[in-house]
């Protein structure tokens, strides 16, 4: 697995966990009748923090552990191919396009709930849900392009 693919797997895992945590917290709030703007925006803050810091920490940790495992298995120094060539850039762009498409559809759907009489909080909750979901789908799309080619 290449350096870029490892990074995508780390991001995908991180964002999938964030999505699960977000949905769990939202359902908890709805069930306990604490689905308020203060709680929702607090959750937004946590999600943003987890997305940025979680991804950075997880990426560093994965490469350190990967390097140690490689050294123990082969007794060779790990060779990190951290250059991003034209194929990597192309795959990243295609993934970004998918992310934009899905998040745009998601935002439109979120706005539609507002139009159909739901509270603005539902719309805000759906916007972040579709944002994270778009990232997950884009990462799966990128991995697929690395595996199957294009």
């Amino acid at each position: 697995m290449s350096f870029q693919e490892k990074n995508i797997v780390v991001t995908l895992t991180n964002f999938s966990l964030i999505l699960a945590f977000y949905l769990f917290r939202i359902f908890q709030m709805v069930q306990s009748d604490t689905f308020t703007s203060t709680n929702l925006f607090w959750l937004w803050g946590i999600i943003a923090l987890l997305a940025v810091i979680g991804t950075i920490v997880a990426t560093i940790f994965t490469h350190i552990v990967g390097g140690i495992v490689h050294k123990v298995k082969t007794n060779e120094d790990p060779h990190i191919e951290d250059i991003q060539d034209e194929r990597d850039q192309m795959i990243e762009l295609k993934g970004t396009k998918v992310a934009y498409t899905f998040s745009s559809i998601g935002i439109a759907l979120a706005m539609l709930t507002f139009v159909f009489g739901q509270s603005p909080l539902v719309m805000f909750a759906l916007i972040i849900f579709f944002g994270v979901l778009a990232q997950v789908i884009a990462d799966i799309w990128r991995l697929n392009l690395y595996r199957k080619g294009f």
Binding site: S2, F3, Q4, E5, E81, I83, D85, E86, R87, D88, Y146, K148, G149, F150
Partner: peptide, 22 residues
């Protein structure tokens, strides 16, 4: 040629068409 080994592998397996420059 200034790319990763994975790109060479992908080209050899006809999974990637390189740019004209490459």
């Amino acid at each position: 040629v200034g790319v990763t080994r994975q790109t060479i592998i992908a080209m050899e397996q006809d999974k990637y068409s390189p740019s004209l420059e490459l």
